[in-house]
């Protein structure tokens, strides 16, 4: 969970100003496949340019800023494609950028410390990494294609969104455990630099994972269930 509380931003806010307040919005731009050189555009400009509902984009910007999504706001069937792109790119970002970077740092951390716990931390992270890979692979290969078919109105077979929701496990806990162990239980000032590097990566990843899971559970799952009801 991230603790940030920036006031609601309106669609006519310049993206530049929004990023100045919350640099994690750079991740959002990348996940949506937008150009990061935003060229003084407002949120609305960017939404129109990319063919996304302005209110949908504004809502996600505000979600990144720690604002809850208003219950009155209903996402539409047309938004599902946008969220699928967002989530698929998020997965790419985890698998190609974030986790390999962290993996390298944790391996380095292991080499610099002698005691048994450094080896254990490395093992802990590797296991976690594998769990995340499994988790993302399942979504990429089963759940997302299922939704893509659902949008096209193709037959569903036995699998439903409820099956996904039932098995959608938490992938943040172990990351937070790692953060906790590094911050509280491994005293070694010599490792400050590498530890800070790992922790900053963890914070960024945790932030993004939180929003990713939120979009899956609170937006995509209800939308998919709505589609299923109509196609039954």
């Amino acid at each position: 969970m991230f603790k940030i509380n920036i006031p609601q931003i309106a669609p006519n806010t310049k993206m530049y100003d929004a990023i100045d307040v919350n640099p994690y919005l750079l991740l959002m731009l990348e996940h949506f496949n937008f150009d990061i050189s935003i060229n003084k555009k407002t949120i609305e400009d960017i939404a129109i340019e990319n063919g996304i509902n302005t209110r949908t984009l504004t809502t996600i910007v505000n979600l990144y800023n720690g604002c809850k999504i208003s219950k009155q706001w209903k996402f539409k069937k047309e938004d599902i494609g946008t969220f699928l792109i967002f989530l698929k790119n998020t997965h790419k970002f985890y698998l190609r950028d974030k986790f390999p970077e962290l993996n390298e740092l944790v391996s380095l951390f292991r080499k610099t410390g002698k005691d048994a716990e450094y080896g254990l931390i490395n093992k802990f992270f590797k296991e976690y990494y594998n769990e995340v890979k499994e988790h993302l692979k399942y979504e990429d290969e089963i759940f997302f294609p299922y939704i893509a078919n659902l949008i096209k109105g193709k037959s569903r077979g036995k699998y439903t969104t409820a099956d996904f929701a039932k098995h959608h496990n938490n992938i943040e806990d172990k990351l937070l455990d790692l953060k906790n162990i590094l911050l509280n239980y491994i005293p070694n000032k010599k490792l400050n630099t590498i530890r800070r590097n790992i922790l900053l990566h963890i914070y960024e990843l945790n932030y993004d994972l939180y929003i990713h899971t939120y979009i899956e559970d609170k937006i995509l799952v209800p939308l998919a269930k709505g589609l299923e009801r109509k196609s039954v």
Partner: peptide
């Protein structure tokens, strides 16, 4: 503050 069994083992 540690939730997972493997994390607790490290502790």
């Amino acid at each position: 503050g540690i939730k997972s069994v493997s994390g607790l083992t490290i502790y």
